[in-house]
Amino acid sequence: MPLKKNIATSEAGFVFNPATGDSFAANPLAAEVLKLLQAGHDLAAIRAQLLERYDVPAHQLQHDLDDFIWQLTSFQLLEE
């Protein structure tokens, strides 16, 4: 489920989709997940990594990551 290649993410947590002209604000964890997606990690690896570092139950993280991927899909930020 890779991020589209030309998506630009800025230091301040902004995401720009050059194909549509849309800008997005990402909160810190969203920015982190986007960076990991861009680096080519798959979702399972990302989940494992976050579980280790953040104080969150596994099922909640799973739910939230699923929602986040839905969000990326509806914003047309993922490769088809």
């Binding site: 800025s10 301040a12 902004f14 720009f16 800008s23 604000a25």
Partner: peptide, 11 residues
């Protein structure tokens, strides 16, 4: 610049 817009809209 788009960054100008991102800052006012985002922050």
């Amino acid at each position: 610049d788009n960054e100008h817009f991102q800052l006012i809209a985002g922050l």
